[in-house]
């Protein structure tokens, strides 16, 4: 048991616990805050996997914008929420075993894969080459087209979001 393994286990335990709280917390605001914690844990995992860049991106994009957006949405819709009401629907007693079953299935299938237990020393690696990533994203022979498509998707999502959420004055709004 190396120290790295201990750190991993601790982070994993915290992350999974907070993930559990995200899906089960009675108050949605609490769930949102636990989501932030979970995302932090995932960022930590990214760093441990040797990708400092994506760890930073995770913090910036997920925590910095998505989680904040969700918190905004929670606050905007809060007056409808009954803090005494059930947070989960009635099916959860059946769905919990089902989820465990899926988990077991995934593990079973993965464990039959030859690379499942492969080990690699990541401590000495230099991490990802961000310059190469940037070049690959803009290289016409690389991923320029997916990159452009992604940007179009973002713009479309942005415009669509504004359109959908816009409060219509008069008319059938």
């Amino acid at each position: 048991m190396t120290s790295l393994q201990i750190v991993f286990l601790v982070v994993a335990a915290v992350t999974l616990f907070s993930a559990g709280m995200v899906v089960s917390a009675r108050k949605l605001m609490h769930a949102a805050l636990f989501l932030v914690l979970t995302l932090m844990g995932v960022a930590f995992m990214f760093a441990m996997l040797g990708s400092g860049f994506f760890a930073v991106i995770q913090v910036l994009v997920y925590i910095g914008s998505i989680a904040i957006l969700i918190i905004f949405a929670v606050m905007l819709t809060r007056n409808m929420m009954d803090s005494e009401a059930e947070a989960s629907n009635r099916g959860w007693q059946i769905l919990a075993p089902l989820s465990l079953l899926i988990f077991a299935g995934i593990i079973t299938i993965l464990s039959s894969w030859h690379a499942f237990t492969s080990v690699r020393d990541l401590s000495g690696t230099a991490g990802e080459d961000v310059v190469a990533l940037g070049k690959a994203l803009t290289d016409p022979n690389g991923f320029a087209i997916p990159f452009e498509l992604a940007s179009i998707l973002l713009v479309a999502a942005l415009a669509g979001a504004i359109y959908v959420a816009m409060e219509r004055k008069g008319g059938r709004g």
Binding site: N89, G91, L95, L98, I102, G105
Partner: peptide
Amino acid sequence: VQQYMILTIVLTL
């Protein structure tokens, strides 16, 4: 939507 999703998952499984 959640019932649909359950169906989807069960069938996918």
